[in-house]
């Protein structure tokens, strides 16, 4: 290539084009090859056949525990592709600050309170349901903790009451979760509901979560508590 000022660095039409065109050809195909390789890797499910790796030759599901992979070649097994991930919050870290209700890009939030019946004590005096110090256990507004009245209380048998959450009313503020966790069995948990979540690339709640409780989890285990 000549650096002539006035005439000869030609555009796309003229004679020295062939040289230019040749360079372009080379670079183009190098780039295409790289992109192709990169994309190809996304298709290939990684198998851990790395010398020194934990499960020699066995598929290790995209190596979830690469941190533990002792292979000096672990960088080869960067878990590319194959795993779909979604945002979820870890109830063990959550401090129920209430930002799930306000920070979500959706209104109302995609975070809702989920009730784990198998952990519930079915208490007559439910700490997640009643305001502290409530004496008359009725479902009147002055007694309820839930700001939207999303928790339903149903009599089962003495002294047990069943509590269910109306997800269409729940705004994910976590008030009930806080008190249930502090005084009760902790059977109420905040979780991102995946029928609502739009799975933003950068989750707005995660960004603002003071406890760093949000993380991407594999889509096939999208809830961070046992469902049964």
């Amino acid at each position: 290539m000549r650096f002539t000022m006035d005439t000869d660095i030609r555009g796309y039409g003229e004679k020295p084009k062939s040289r230019r065109e040749f360079f372009r050809f080379i670079i183009r195909w190098i780039l295409l090859l790289l992109l192709g390789l990169f994309g190809g890797m996304a298709f290939v499910r990684r198998r851990c056949s790395l010398p020194g790796g934990p499960g020699n030759g066995k598929a290790c599901g995209g190596c979830p525990s690469l941190a533990k992979c002792k292979s000096p070649y672990s960088w080869l097994a960067k878990p590319l592709g194959s795993r779909r991930t979604v945002w979820q919050l870890d109830p063990a870290k959550c401090i129920q600050c209430g930002r799930c209700a306000t920070e979500c890009v959706l209104q109302p939030s995609a975070v809702k309170c989920i009730h784990r019946f198998d952990m519930c004590g079915y208490c007559k005096l439910c700490f997640g349901y009643f305001q502290p110090g409530t004496s008359v256990l009725t479902s009147a507004a002055e007694n309820q903790i839930c700001p939207t009245g999303a928790i339903r209380r149903k009599y089962i048998e003495e002294p047990y009451y069943e509590y269910t959450i109306d997800l269409s009313l729940c705004i994910g503020c976590g008030k009930c979760v806080k008190t249930c966790g502090a005084f009760g069995n902790g059977s109420l948990k905040l979780q991102v509901c995946h029928d609502l979540c739009v799975n933003c690339n950068e989750c707005s709640i995660a960004r603002n979560c003071p406890a760093g409780a949000y993380s991407r989890v594999p889509a096939d285990e999208a809830y961070l508590f046992k469902t049964s």
């Binding site: 979604v86 198998d118 004590g121 069943e162 509901c193 995946h194 609502l196 999208a222 469902t227």
Partner: peptide, 19 residues
């Protein structure tokens, strides 16, 4: 855990799976 006498069945906690 409550011991129900009248045959109450523990409901499943339902969650919606992702896309």
């Amino acid at each position: 855990k409550p011991q129900f006498e009248k045959g109450y069945e523990l409901p499943q906690t339902a969650v919606q799976s992702p896309r």
